[in-house]
Amino acid sequence: MEPTPLPVVIRPTAGSRLAWGLFVLGLALMGLGIWFGETARILDKATQVCLQCIGIG
């Protein structure tokens, strides 16, 4: 039976070292942010109604 062709042509590649490096750097920064308590501070803000977002000020 004829396989259904995919809608786009895909091609796996190794990817650039720069992209992989930035990916790892991003993960490291996320780890540092969590370590410094950033996510807890984000939680504090995000669980209260943001008056600026609504347009109250």
């Binding site: 930035l22 991003g26 490291a28 996320m30 410094f36 984000i42």
Partner: peptide, 19 residues
């Protein structure tokens, strides 16, 4: 400086962007 920089957010967006 370290805790006043959104490291988690920058890291998340950098990782997502790199992928």
């Amino acid at each position: 400086v370290l805790t006043g920089t959104p490291l988690f957010v920058i890291g998340l967006m950098t990782a997502v962007g790199a992928l």
